[in-house]
């Protein structure tokens, strides 16, 4: 078995990796007919920590390898950052990102199983956690030690199927299952608390029998630490609520409902890339 983890230094290498993912997201959003910029940017640190922070045991050369950990990216609309992290981790060539949403490409607006490293085709919300429950049940049955990580959007948690699965995971004591909610606070039509309030959000998960951690979802130290400690409690599923900002890293998109989905103009593209370069210089 060649399963291993990529474990970059939290203080130096991971931030640069996160910036690199953001640059890809900017390019994909500008060079295609458009992308879900806001939710792709908010999940960057979560994906960086999973794939480069010593968490996911996967083999990019053999994406189906037995015994691997599973990542279900349930918020499939935010595919740009998922493709970016899979490419950078070596599941497919980084150059292939240029084919995003182009005819004949594997990289559709919503990820399909054609893409190496994509375990579940997602895009319709509320599907990832139930499937994750099935994978986790199989792991318990087989006495296998793989873990199942499911990244959810916060707006997605308005889907009833999420709570059906949450109830079931706790009932069966699935401590090999971890839900990571990208709590960026904004959905298509506006702030979650205005459209369909989720708070008290952590209490909801706790009352369903999950062990909950609330963290700053853009603090790579906090994200990697929380993921390393999964399961946070024996015989309980873990929910990590990562407080994030939609469009994080690009000043004009940060916290903006309007940048849930869109296409960047050439000027916006250059401004966004410039801001990321400036951020890199100031951290150096």
């Amino acid at each position: 078995m060649t399963l291993d983890v990529s474990n970059l230094a939290v203080d130096t290498e991971l931030p640069e990796r996160a910036r690199s993912l953001r640059r890809h997201v900017v390019r994909l959003t500008a060079d295609s007919s458009g992308a879900h910029l806001g939710g792709s940017m908010s999940s960057v640190e979560i994906l960086t920590a999973l794939f480069f922070g010593g968490v996911l045991r996967v083999d990019p050369r053999d994406p189906e390898s037995e015994g691997r950990d599973y990542l279900i990216y349930s918020k499939g609309h935010a595919s740009a950052s998922l493709y970016a992290v899979l490419a950078e981790r070596g599941f497919f060539p980084v150059e292939e990102l240029e084919t995003y949403k182009q005819p004949g490409s594997r990289l559709a607006g919503h990820p399909s199983k054609e893409v190496p490293g994509v375990e579940l085709a997602t895009g319709s919300l509320g599907h990832g956690l139930p499937v994750g429950v099935g994978l986790a049940l199989a792991g318990k049955h087989d006495r296998s030690d793989y873990r199942v990580f499911v990244v959810l959007g916060d707006g997605e948690c308005q889907e009833g199927s999420v709570w059906e699965a949450a109830m079931c995971a706790a009932h069966y004591g699935l401590d090999n299952l971890c839900a990571i909610v990208d709590r960026n606070g904004i959905q298509e039509d506006g702030p979650t608390e205005e459209i369909m309030a989720l708070e008290p959000f952590a209490d909801k998960w706790r009352s369903f029998g999950w062990e909950v951690a609330e963290i700053d979802g853009h603090d790579l130290g906090q994200v990697t630490d929380a993921l390393h400690r999964v399961p946070h409690r024996d015989r309980r599923p873990t929910a990590i609520i990562a407080r994030t900002q939609k469009g994080h890293g690009v000043s004009f998109a940060a916290g903006m409902t309007a940048w849930h989905y869109g296409q960047l103009t050439p000027q916006q593209r250059e401004q966004a890339l410039g801001e990321l370069d400036a951020d890199a210089e100031s951290s150096a």
Partner: peptide, 11 residues
Amino acid sequence: NLIGAAAGLAM
């Protein structure tokens, strides 16, 4: 959840 979990088991 019943159907989704079944799909997960099938995976």
